[in-house]
């Protein structure tokens, strides 16, 4: 490979990267200047940037309320995912009657996209009295099959002898869990935290269906609602976009490796 000059590859990749980055750059620039909305032709560099639109958003909508709702739902989803998937993943490392059938059941559930169950899922949630509630928003995402298998693989990778040795030495079970198992499954936990966080943070269709109360809306709902109110005539809309994009982006950049591992090990969303 090294026989080839590298610059054509860099050139091609730079052009393609630029195309991928333009939407991000454009929304950031407009949120700081608002100029492309009112002026044509648009300027390529931000002229006299200001944070007026961010202040505008802050007062125009209950941003903190949306943020709070999003965080609550995400925390419920992430905690539930780690605990429930770890439990189920551990159970699947053991031998028990019905294990094959359980695995088959999990795998077939992966073939049912949540979107095709949305109508009865709404009716069931309504029967359970969970419309307009955090639990109602979080429950369908509370366990993820992909992550169950990630945990299963992680538990299977722990050498049995290690745990047996600890047992013989008289180490209590809770200490085995916290001092041996948890540290060794840290990558699986990280993968699960990242995936479930991103899924619940971005989740739109489900909250749209079950949340009517404006006080319970999460960030994506608030954003869509703001769009329908202001149309596209204000920089505030794009400031709002930046404010919802940034947390997801930061978390992704910090934990890119875990995120990609998780996606490629299962590769089906949902």
């Amino acid at each position: 490979m090294s026989r080839y000059p590298h610059w054509p590859i860099h050139l091609a990749l730079s052009i393609a990267s630029a195309a991928m980055l333009v939407p991000f750059y454009w929304v950031l620039k407009t949120s700081l200047t608002g100029e492309n909305i009112f002026t044509f032709p648009p300027s390529l560099l931000p002229e006299s940037p200001h944070i007026f639109y961010y202040v505008d958003v802050w007062y125009a909508i209950p941003f903190l309320r949306y943020l709070f709702n999003s965080i609550i739902v995400s925390v419920i989803v992430v905690v539930a995912n780690v605990v429930l998937n770890a439990m189920a993943g551990y159970a699947l490392t053991r031998d028990f009657p019905g294990k094959g059938a359980t695995i088959l059941l999990f795998l077939s559930c992966m073939m049912i996209p949540f979107q095709v169950t949305i109508i009865p899922a709404y009716l069931i949630t309504s029967e359970m009295g969970l419309l307009n509630s955090y639990v109602g928003m979080a429950l369908p995402l509370a366990s993820t099959i992909v992550c169950i298998f990630v945990f299963k693989a992680a538990f299977e990778a722990i050498p049995k002898s290690l745990i047996d040795a600890a047992r013989i030495d008289g180490v209590p079970d809770w200490m085995i869990v916290f001092r041996i198992i948890l540290p060794l499954t840290k990558p699986a936990i990280a993968t699960n935290v990242i995936l479930s966080f991103i899924w619940s943070w971005n989740s739109f269709l489900w909250p749209l269906v079950i949340v009517r109360d404006a006080q319970m809306q999460t960030l994506p709902l608030g954003l869509a609602r703001f769009l329908s109110v202001v149309e596209d005539t204000t920089g505030a809309l794009y400031a709002f976009c930046v404010m919802v994009l940034v947390p997801g982006l930061i978390i992704f950049l910090l934990a890119q490796k875990e995120f990609i591992t998780g996606l490629t090990s299962g590769a089906t969303k949902g």
Binding site: A16, M20, N202, F204, P220, L223, A224, V244, F252
Partner: peptide, 11 residues
Amino acid sequence: FFMSYPVMTVA
């Protein structure tokens, strides 16, 4: 290239 995937689709 991967950055556009995990961001919020509504935005």
